[in-house]
Design a protein around this nucleic acid. Structure first.
Lengths: 94, 94
DNA sequence: CAATGTTACGATACACGTAATCATA
DNA sequence: TATGATTACGTGTATCGTAACATTG
C-alpha cells in the first residue's frame, strides 16, 4: 500500500467519481481505476460500489476514508516536525 | 514522500546502520542510501549524520522517527478498520 | 448517444542489484 | 585493510497516457 494510493482513494471518495477525481489530480482515469483496484486487491476488500453514475463508498470504504485522512495529516505533521526540529538550533526556540 | 521510504527510514534509524538495515530488510545497501537521500531531499532536511561507523540520528531525524512510527501504526489501523467493516454485515458484530 | 468506468497496449520512468569507488578507524 | 556509505550502470518492473471497449441512464 502506497501513499499515492491513499491520496488517490481520498480524492475519488471525496469527488464520488473517477472522472472528477482525475480532473482534480490532473491525471487520466486509467491510472485512477488501476490504483483503486490495486488497493482493493491488497486489502482484500471492496471499497466502492461502481455504477455508470460514479463511485459510491461502501461501509469498508467509509471506514478506510476516516483513517486515511488521519494518515495523510500525520504525514504532514511528521514532515513539519522534522523541518521545525532542523530549524531549531541548540536552545533557541523556533 | 513514499511509504516504503518511511519504512526504510525507521529500519535505518533503529539499526543505526545501512548495512544492518539492509540485512534486516533483505535488500542491498544502494536502494537504502538512495531512499534516505531522496527523503532528505524532499524534506529539505538532513536526518542522519554519516560516519564510517554508521548512521546517527540528528535532531530532525529523531523528531521524524517518532511521527513516522505513528504513521505506520495508523496505516495498519486503517487497513484493519476497512477489513473489519467489510466483515461486519448488517447488524451482526464482527 | 452521452457519460462513466474498465481494459489493451506501447513508451517512458522508476527502482533494484552487481560492481566499482570513496572515506575512515 | 576492513567496514561502511556512496555512485555508476545495466536491466527488469511499474506506471503513465492514448485509444479502444463496455455499460447504463
Amino acid at each position: 500500500v502506497s501513499f499515492s494510493q491513499v491520496q488517490t482513494f481520498v480524492a475519488v471518495a471525496e469527488e464520488g467519481s473517477l472522472s472528477r477525481a482525475a480532473r482534480r489530480l490532473r491525471i487520466s482515469q486509467p491510472p485512477l481505476t488501476r490504483q483503486i483496484h490495486a488497493l482493493e486487491d491488497e486489502l482484500g476488500v471492496l471499497l466502492f460500489a461502481r455504477s455508470s453514475r460514479g463511485m459510491r463508498l461502501l461501509p469498508a470504504g467509509q471506514a478506510f476514508l476516516a483513517r486515511a485522512r488521519v494518515v495523510l495529516a500525520e504525514v504532514d505533521g511528521a514532515i513539519a516536525a522534522a523541518r521545525q526540529a532542523a530549524a531549531t538550533v541548540s536552545g533557541r526556540p523556533d
